[in-house]
Amino acid sequence: MFMRRNPSTNISISFEGRKVPCKLGDTVAAAILAASPSYTRRTPKHGEMRAPYCMMGACFECLMEINGVTDQQACLTLVEDGMSIKRQILVVGSDWA
Protein backbone atom coordinates (compact mmCIF):
# COMPACT_ATOMS: atom_id res chain seq x y z
CA MET A 1 0.00 0.00 0.00
CA PHE A 2 2.90 2.35 0.75
CA MET A 3 6.47 2.72 -0.41
CA ARG A 4 9.54 4.45 0.86
CA ARG A 5 10.66 7.58 -0.94
CA ASN A 6 14.18 6.52 -0.08
CA PRO A 7 14.40 2.72 -0.36
CA SER A 8 17.33 2.19 2.01
CA THR A 9 16.62 0.14 5.12
CA ASN A 10 18.82 -0.84 8.06
CA ILE A 11 17.03 -3.43 10.20
CA SER A 12 14.36 -6.06 9.80
CA ILE A 13 11.33 -7.37 11.62
CA SER A 14 9.21 -10.40 11.00
CA PHE A 15 5.58 -10.14 9.97
CA GLU A 16 3.70 -13.44 10.14
CA GLY A 17 7.05 -15.20 9.84
CA ARG A 18 8.05 -13.21 6.77
CA LYS A 19 11.14 -11.02 6.97
CA VAL A 20 10.33 -7.36 6.44
CA PRO A 21 13.19 -4.91 5.97
CA CYS A 22 12.63 -1.56 7.65
CA LYS A 23 14.30 1.48 9.05
CA LEU A 24 14.96 2.57 12.61
CA GLY A 25 12.43 5.27 13.40
CA ASP A 26 9.59 3.55 11.48
CA THR A 27 6.48 2.78 13.42
CA VAL A 28 5.46 -0.85 13.26
CA ALA A 29 2.28 0.13 11.39
CA ALA A 30 4.25 2.04 8.75
CA ALA A 31 6.77 -0.77 8.29
CA ILE A 32 3.95 -3.29 7.82
CA LEU A 33 2.00 -1.03 5.45
CA ALA A 34 5.12 -0.80 3.30
CA ALA A 35 5.15 -4.59 3.10
CA SER A 36 1.69 -4.82 1.46
CA PRO A 37 0.10 -6.71 4.32
CA SER A 38 -3.42 -6.89 2.73
CA TYR A 39 -4.75 -6.62 6.30
CA THR A 40 -3.42 -6.42 9.85
CA ARG A 41 -6.27 -7.64 12.03
CA ARG A 42 -9.61 -9.35 11.85
CA THR A 43 -12.65 -8.14 13.71
CA PRO A 44 -14.03 -10.34 16.47
CA LYS A 45 -17.66 -10.30 15.35
CA HIS A 46 -17.61 -10.94 11.61
CA GLY A 47 -13.93 -11.68 11.03
CA GLU A 48 -13.67 -8.67 8.73
CA MET A 49 -10.23 -7.68 7.54
CA ARG A 50 -8.95 -4.33 8.72
CA ALA A 51 -5.81 -2.24 8.37
CA PRO A 52 -4.47 0.88 10.13
CA TYR A 53 -6.75 3.84 9.52
CA CYS A 54 -5.71 6.97 11.45
CA MET A 55 -1.98 6.50 12.13
CA MET A 56 -2.29 8.73 15.17
CA GLY A 57 -3.48 6.55 18.01
CA ALA A 58 -7.22 7.25 17.73
CA CYS A 59 -8.91 4.43 15.80
CA PHE A 60 -7.29 1.31 17.29
CA GLU A 61 -7.53 -0.42 13.90
CA CYS A 62 -3.78 -1.09 14.08
CA LEU A 63 -4.00 -3.38 17.12
CA MET A 64 -1.52 -6.19 16.51
CA GLU A 65 0.45 -8.78 18.37
CA ILE A 66 3.93 -7.41 18.94
CA ASN A 67 6.56 -9.73 20.46
CA GLY A 68 3.79 -11.94 21.75
CA VAL A 69 1.76 -9.18 23.40
CA THR A 70 -1.69 -8.55 21.93
CA ASP A 71 -3.63 -5.27 21.76
CA GLN A 72 -0.58 -3.20 20.84
CA GLN A 73 -1.17 -0.04 18.83
CA ALA A 74 1.25 -0.59 15.96
CA CYS A 75 1.08 3.06 14.90
CA LEU A 76 2.48 4.16 18.27
CA THR A 77 5.21 1.52 18.50
CA LEU A 78 8.65 1.94 16.98
CA VAL A 79 10.29 -0.99 15.21
CA GLU A 80 13.22 -2.78 16.80
CA ASP A 81 15.53 -5.17 15.01
CA GLY A 82 14.18 -8.71 15.14
CA MET A 83 10.72 -7.75 16.41
CA SER A 84 8.04 -10.30 15.75
CA ILE A 85 4.71 -8.96 14.51
CA LYS A 86 1.53 -10.92 14.00
CA ARG A 87 -1.95 -10.06 12.86
CA GLN A 88 -4.40 -9.80 15.71
CA ILE A 89 -7.23 -12.25 15.33
CA LEU A 90 -9.49 -12.12 18.36
CA VAL A 91 -12.71 -13.99 18.82
CA VAL A 92 -15.94 -12.94 20.46
CA GLY A 93 -15.54 -13.03 24.22
CA SER A 94 -12.01 -11.67 24.30
CA ASP A 95 -11.40 -8.32 25.95
CA TRP A 96 -12.31 -5.99 23.12
CA ALA A 97 -14.69 -8.23 21.26
Partner: peptide, 25 residues
Protein backbone atom coordinates in the same frame (compact mmCIF):
# COMPACT_ATOMS: atom_id res chain seq x y z
CA UNK B 1 -14.91 2.76 4.83
CA UNK B 2 -13.65 -0.13 6.93
CA UNK B 3 -12.02 -1.90 3.97
CA UNK B 4 -8.23 -2.19 4.07
CA UNK B 5 -7.05 0.48 1.63
CA UNK B 6 -9.26 3.24 3.06
CA UNK B 7 -7.50 5.64 5.42
CA UNK B 8 -7.60 9.18 6.66
CA UNK B 9 -5.88 11.72 4.43
CA UNK B 10 -4.12 12.95 7.56
CA UNK B 11 -2.99 9.39 8.16
CA UNK B 12 -1.26 9.30 4.77
CA UNK B 13 0.41 12.57 5.65
CA UNK B 14 1.60 11.03 8.92
CA UNK B 15 3.21 8.23 6.87
CA UNK B 16 5.16 10.84 4.97
CA UNK B 17 6.12 12.89 8.03
CA UNK B 18 7.08 10.08 10.31
CA UNK B 19 8.41 7.45 7.94
CA UNK B 20 9.07 9.07 4.57
CA UNK B 21 6.51 6.81 2.89
CA UNK B 22 3.99 7.60 0.18
CA UNK B 23 1.10 5.59 -1.25
CA UNK B 24 1.99 3.07 -3.90
CA UNK B 25 -0.36 2.68 -6.85
Amino acid sequence: WTLPGVMGAGAAQVMLKSSGMIPEG
